[in-house]
Simulated assay, not measured.
Amino acid sequence: MQNKPDIILSAADVATIERYIEKMPHANEQVLALENELARAKVVKHQDLPSDVIAMGSRVTFRIAELNKEFSKTLCYPEQLANHEDGISIFAPVGSALIGLRVGQSIDWPLNGSVRHVEIIAVSPAPVAA
């Protein structure tokens, strides 16, 4: 992956995602890529996360350049998918690409056997963490 923009994550999101990863029986390429994102992120308190940064629970509008198509999804954990008509799991390839990015940023990410250019168009902030 060539395009690796700066990303910001909340400490709470990092801790929860890491707990999910620890419970997985084996780490596939997607999980390893997500772990790399967690490792390179600037980590802040949830309340210090800028409102235009994608966190768990954020509703995101993004474009996949190669498909010339826009999508609007809510980034969530696997068991929350049923709660969101537009949900996308953090463990889905595009879900992993979205976390920590902000409006105007883009990232090159492996998707369906090739690299896709994912561009962030809009973010509705995640709800305040409990």
Rank of each mutant, 00 (worst) to 15 (best):
T61L: 14
I107F: 05
P93E: 04
E35M: 02
Q30F: 07
L9H: 00
T16K: 08
E85T: 11
E37R: 01
T61I: 15
G113Q: 12
I7F: 00
M1T: 15
A130K: 03
E85V: 13
A82P: 02
P5H: 13
Q105A: 15
V118F: 13
L49W: 04
I99D: 00
M24W: 06
A97H: 10
K69E: 11
V118M: 07
I120P: 02
I120W: 06
A11P: 09
V53W: 04
W109P: 04
A41N: 07
A130M: 04
R63L: 07
G104R: 12
G104S: 12
Q30L: 10
S51Q: 15
R59Y: 09
R102M: 13
A92W: 08
T74S: 14
V128Q: 08
H117S: 15
Q47I: 05
R59G: 03
F71M: 10
G57Y: 08
I54V: 15
A97P: 05
E37W: 02
G57C: 11
H84T: 00
F62Q: 11
I17G: 00
I64G: 01
E18C: 12
H117F: 00
K23L: 12
T16S: 07
I121N: 13
H46S: 09
A55V: 06
M24D: 02
N83H: 01
R59I: 03
N112Q: 15
V103Q: 11
G87V: 12
V14I: 03
E66A: 15
P110N: 15
V103P: 09
K23H: 06
V14L: 09
L111W: 04
L38S: 12
K42T: 05
M56N: 06
R102Y: 14
F71I: 03
Q30K: 15
N3E: 07
R19Q: 02
P25M: 06
S72M: 11
S106H: 06
V94G: 00
L101I: 09
M1G: 14
A12K: 10
N28R: 14
N36D: 05
A55I: 04
L98P: 02
V53G: 04
A65N: 11
A41D: 09
I90P: 01
M24N: 09
V128R: 03
S124A: 09
G113V: 07
I120S: 01
W109Q: 02
R116T: 00
I21K: 02
H84K: 04
S96F: 06
D6H: 10
I8Q: 02
V60K: 06
L98N: 05
V94L: 07
D52H: 15
S58P: 10
G57K: 05
P110S: 07
E79I: 01
S10W: 06
S89Q: 13
V44L: 12
V103S: 11
K4G: 10
